[in-house]
Design a protein around this nucleic acid. Sequence first.
DNA 1: ATGGGCATGTAAGTAGTTACATGATTTA
DNA 2: TAAATCATGTAACTACTTACATGCCCAT
Lengths: 184, 184
Amino acid sequence: MAVSEQTRMAVLGGLSITPMTGYALREQIRDTLGHFWAESFGQIYPALSALEREGLIERQPAARAGSSTFAITPAGSIRLRELLSEAPQPAQPRNGLLLRLFFGRQLGEAACRALVQDARARAETDLARMRGLRAELRGDIGPDAPFILLTVLAGEHSARASIAWAEEATRLLDGLVAAEPEPS
Amino acid sequence: MAVSEQTRMAVLGGLSITPMTGYALREQIRDTLGHFWAESFGQIYPALSALEREGLIERQPAARAGSSTFAITPAGSIRLRELLSEAPQPAQPRNGLLLRLFFGRQLGEAACRALVQDARARAETDLARMRGLRAELRGDIGPDAPFILLTVLAGEHSARASIAWAEEATRLLDGLVAAEPEPS
DNA sequence: ATGGGCATGTAAGTAGTTACATGATTTA
DNA sequence: TAAATCATGTAACTACTTACATGCCCAT
């Protein structure tokens, strides 16, 4: 199967920070890009093969038998800059939470309230994670740090917005019960 | 191809508000669920066929030859409530903007600034759209209105967060240029 | 009578996940 | 020495988009 440009970008980008194995690359993507990007093994390994064929990365035998470290080549750096320069194509949105709330009348007010509370809890967790990432970054004066900070800040703003929305949504659902009480 | 539960939910949900044609359903989805959900014709028509086979919706001949209006059946309403009750499965994130900013050192500070400005402009447009939707909803006292309002508020909070982030990100990029001026 | 919007549907292609198969190395 | 973890890779499947083919109906 053809490897998408998006996946090439993520893989080349990861290797532009430091050479590593496919396995390590996946862990890096999960841990540092995780809040806004995902790649599975089924994407990463074919992408590594394709990029190697094209001379954009090089395979160097690693300490461990059967494993190899991949490093970006000069041609790969050029290609990465090209890929990054292309306009981001907005992914089609698919928010299961909002879909359920939209049809909330069918689902019932209590279930909606539970969904909102869950979302709020997840946002609190995310916010804590983002604050942790930011604290880690404060000690990092590497050339990539300010750009990584940009993405962490986006996560923080997004999480805070989710929390604020959840509070407003809860108040709104409370008002709904007050306005239409159960028949006595 | 099998039709996914997510698509069934969106289609049954749409028809739970009012009966309509597949074409109208797609327009409804684009216009009212558009900021958090998307379905293409290639999903909607197979979904309508499948749901009809299962007795969850009924096809009624429409005024126009060759077209038909679909209405949800009692069995369909039950199935919809079941589907809505399932836990939302979080879609794997794919944010092309943040991916580019993360590797911003490769892309260059000026291009990053442009990306942030674009994102800000898009967020302003979204915010205006959400405010418009909210104004429309103020006149609607239907039973679905408060639930729809929940989703519009989510859009508003999200758009405002994007704008606030873009401002902070721009300041941060400005500081970057001041700290590392071009060699004279 | 014709062009544009309404309407239905399918085929081909794209993208991505999950599960599996395999084996090396480390650690308890 | 057994279990956990590191590591690579593929096959089958699922989901979704795009482009195309077709035709109706209304307004000009």
